[in-house]
């Protein structure tokens, strides 16, 4: 269970990215956060695993208060949250296997990490996960040899091999073409459901969100302006989230009106 309450973040530049954001994810649902760019989606996600420090508010994962942690305890908490990135953020010059195994770094010593001596269970888990994302036999390819869709699959594998309690997914498809986007999104949602873990997914592509989401959180200027089932997110709701920009937004993503 992820419990976010009263999260507030203002950057030194003056951008008020989050204004008292609160919500709870119970069970293993995939929750989609939508909103125009600059609404604070990315900041919200990074405040959950504290890649960005929130100014106020708390984040609780199960019984753990993430916002109260520091140092080793914070790193241990991060092990329980798998993150998937917009630009994949693979270490380009490492092999696929090394990228996937970096999901287990929190469990091995510095020496083991340097010598690439991961426990056999981790290696087995990495092989199994690579197969689940459809990249069997790719382990010794270098990440920069892969296509965009394949890279994101490695990114997914890296997050899953952590055996996380939640997936944090930041615009996973905006660097991909529409067909690959759909496949990657289906993979993320499907694998999260298989492992029975929730996912918090940022996305700007409303039709794609509609296709996969049950629950949607709408962010605008750092404020939660909608939180509810996707079925009730009608034109009026979208108008509230996007303002007048909604038509342009849907046109850009290549589909008709909702």
């Amino acid at each position: 269970m992820l419990e976010v309450s009263g999260l507030d973040k203002r950057y030194p530049t003056g951008d008020h990215a989050l204004r008292s954001v609160s919500f709870t994810i119970d069970g293993a649902d995939a929750v989609f956060v939508i909103g125009p760019s600059g609404a604070g989606k990315s900041t919200l996600l990074r405040c959950v695993n504290r890649l960005v420090e929130p100014d106020r508010g708390t984040v609780r994962l199960d019984d753990l208060d993430i916002t109260a942690l520091a140092g080793k305890a914070l790193r241990d908490a991060r092990r329980r949250m798998g993150m998937i990135f917009q630009e994949f953020n693979l270490v380009e010059r490492l092999t696929v296997m090394e990228n996937v195994l970096s999901g287990r770094l929190g469990y091995v010593s510095l020496w083991q990490a340097w010598r690439r001596r991961f426990p056999p269970d981790d290696i087995e888990a990495a092989f199994v996960t690579l197969r689940r994302v459809g990249l069997e036999g790719f382990e010794n390819k270098r990440a920069d040899e892969l296509s965009g869709g394949q890279r994101q699959r490695v990114g997914i594998a890296r997050a899953l091999v952590q055996r996380p309690r939640i997936l944090l997914v930041d615009e996973p498809t905006s660097s991909l073409d529409p067909r690959t986007s759909e496949a990657v999104m289906a993979l993320i949602v499907g694998l999260a459901a298989e492992d029975d873990i929730p996912a918090l997914v940022n996305i700007h592509d409303v039709p794609l969100a509609r296709a996969f989401a049950r629950r949607i959180i709408g962010l605008r200027d750092g404020l939660v302006v909608y939180d509810g089932p996707v079925a009730q997110a009608d034109a009026a709701v979208l108008e509230r989230i996007y303002g007048g920009a909604i038509l342009a937004e849907t046109e850009r993503s290549g589909s008709g009106p909702l």
Partner: peptide, 11 residues
């Protein structure tokens, strides 16, 4: 099912 644990060495 867990088969015999596979090993992996970086190329």
């Amino acid at each position: 099912t867990a088969t015999a644990a596979r090993t992996w060495r970086p190329p």
